[in-house]
């Protein structure tokens, strides 16, 4: 025959059972919340990695554009130097010929004329070896403009600015760290809920329940604020 429990003891046992059920429910909710926070932290960390890759790709694009601009630009500039040499030589020869007196040696005049004609031919040939649009009005070559335009054109076609990507990666890493801090807070709440089961004092149980729930809510709000970008 089963022993009859006193009514107040049955009442207390019923209360304990309700508390245990509530704690179990809260532990489950905190665990699920922790899993969600962990998932968001993982997504954020993954995004940071992607942003870093994009930044490195932009760095490669920029350095490739700079290198090609320099190599091509200075190759053109070298061709320009040949052109410049022939052109200036021609100009000086013209000045010399025009300065000759009437009694100048015919053979010398003919030789200079031939040299001038050769120079004109060489100037014309050399002028096709570099882009003429970068010639300055004073006859020099705008190498900085040529390389600058090359890089600018490359920037229109591809991302050549790595810094925003790296800034985004750093921000996402900070975001991940903040989410992990809130996860730690949630775990502390779990500890409080676990301690409820380890104590017999009813007052202490409720105190732990309140403290655990407070910490849980703080962690939850913190996670929400981090995720919403408020922190």
């Amino acid at each position: 025959m089963a022993e009859q429990k006193p009514p107040e003891s049955a009442e207390a046992e019923k209360g304990d059972s309700h508390l245990s059920t509530l704690v179990a429910l809260l532990i489950a909710i905190v665990s699920v919340s922790g899993a969600v926070v962990t998932w968001r932290a993982s997504v954020s960390a993954d995004g940071a990695g992607d942003a870093d890759v994009a930044g490195i790709r932009a760095t490669i694009n920029l350095t490739e554009a700079n290198t090609l601009a320099t190599v091509n630009g200075y190759s053109d500039y070298a061709s320009f130097l040949d052109y410049y040499k022939y052109r200036e030589t021609g100009t000086l020869l013209e000045d010399e010929i025009s300065g000759l007196t009437e009694d100048a040696d015919e053979a010398e005049i003919a030789a200079m004329g031939k040299e001038l004609a050769d120079n004109h031919d060489l100037t014309t040939a050399a002028s096709s070896a570099f882009p003429n649009e970068y010639l300055n009005r004073d006859g020099t070559y705008a190498i900085a403009r040529e390389t600058g335009e090359y890089v600018a054109n490359a920037a229109r076609e591809r991302d050549t600015n790595p810094q925003p990507n790296f800034d985004e990666a750093d921000a996402l890493r900070a975001h991940t760290d903040q989410l992990l801090v809130t996860l730690s807070v949630l775990v502390v709440a779990l500890v409080f809920y676990t301690l409820i089961e380890a104590t017999d004092s009813k007052r202490l149980k409720y105190l732990l329940l309140v403290m655990g729930t407070g910490i849980f809510l703080a962690g939850l709000v913190g996670a929400f604020l981090v995720e919403s970008g408020s922190i």
Partner: peptide
């Protein structure tokens, strides 16, 4: 561990760049 991993990634990225 996560923080160290983040710093590792950031320094690695800086070195690559």
């Amino acid at each position: 561990q996560s923080d160290a991993g983040n710093r590792d990634d950031r320094a690695g990225r800086d070195a690559t760049r």
